[in-house]
């Protein structure tokens, strides 16, 4: 799912349930399967391997001699928010995987994403072109579940509106900023790396946050989680994506994490 091809059955909720089952006690793979897809249902096919593999890829579980065990602290599986936060801290390991590349390409497209195909399944060829790897429509369908869950955007039927507020909130929490301390934008971004690389490219020199990242930062500011400021005479400045109505505060030199 994250290392290679994205598959639709491996949705976050199934991964989470599997981890919770294994979290109670280590079980053989057949036992876990029997719990989630019991034989009495007489189903002709199974999704089990897909979500089990995703859990394994994300190092939530380990599989040894067909026995599944939890590989993370119990706090990671406290709820789906904690699992999400953990996964967002792991994404950097999958830089070559479809999910990482597609997410990056989606955000790189900026506001342009609004003006075109609004069904991610039909964006497969576009994403193939942007990522340089083969992406099919099924992979894109699978991508939307995780993009939405991991907080990269909001699902509108088959379209994902880029707004990385939840993802950013997770990696900000992970980075353990000192609360109420004003960080320069350079410091702020540095602390977020490498987790932020998936959607923030600090290396290209443009110093412009993409549409989806700007939406996320602005949403976090609206929620009182961060405060973005423009202070004169600061060396480093970044610009948020320009929206007329929000243009008054689009240059940022400092960010304070408030909560």
């Amino acid at each position: 799912m994250f290392q290679n091809k994205m598959v639709t059955p491996a949705i976050p909720e199934r991964v989470y349930t599997l981890c919770k089952i294994v979290g109670k006690k280590a079980m053989s793979t057949s036992e876990v399967k029997e719990k989630m897809e019991p034989s009495y249902l007489n189903q002709k096919s199974s999704y089990y391997n897909d979500y089990r593999n995703a859990a394994e890829e994300l190092q939530l579980i380990t599989v040894t001699d067909n026995v599944l065990s939890v590989a993370v602290d119990a706090s990671v599986l406290k709820n789906m928010d904690t699992m999400r936060s953990y996964i967002n801290g792991q994404l950097n390991q999958f830089r070559e995987g479809q999910f990482y590349k597609v997410t990056k390409a989606y955000f790189d497209m900026g506001e342009e994403i609004l003006h075109g195909e609004q069904n991610v399944a039909n964006m497969a060829s576009l994403m193939t072109l942007k990522t340089g790897i083969s992406v099919d429509s099924m992979a894109m369908r699978a991508w939307r579940f995780w993009a939405s869950y991991l907080g990269f955007g909001y699902l509108q039927d088959m379209f994902v509106i880029p707004n990385a507020d939840t993802f950013l909130q997770d990696i900000i929490s992970e980075a353990e900023f000192e609360k109420n301390k004003r960080y320069s934008i350079a410091e702020f971004l540095e602390k977020l790396r490498p987790h932020s690389d998936i959607i923030i490219d600090s290396s290209n020199g443009t110093k412009k946050f993409s549409f989806g990242v700007s939406n996320g930062l602005r949403t976090l500011q609206d929620a009182g989680a961060i405060r973005m400021e423009y202070i004169l005479d600061q060396e480093d400045t970044w610009n948020l994506y320009h929206v007329d109505a929000l243009s008054a505060n689009e240059t940022v030199t400092n960010i304070t994490v408030l909560k």
């Binding site: 707004n163 507020d165 609206d222 929620a223 007329d244 929000l246």
Partner: peptide, 21 residues
Amino acid sequence: QSWEYVGSDFDAYVITSWTAR
């Protein structure tokens, strides 16, 4: 029923940030 119009960037932001709230 699409984002294909001038100023949709603002609306997309308004709608998603409202949803978050």
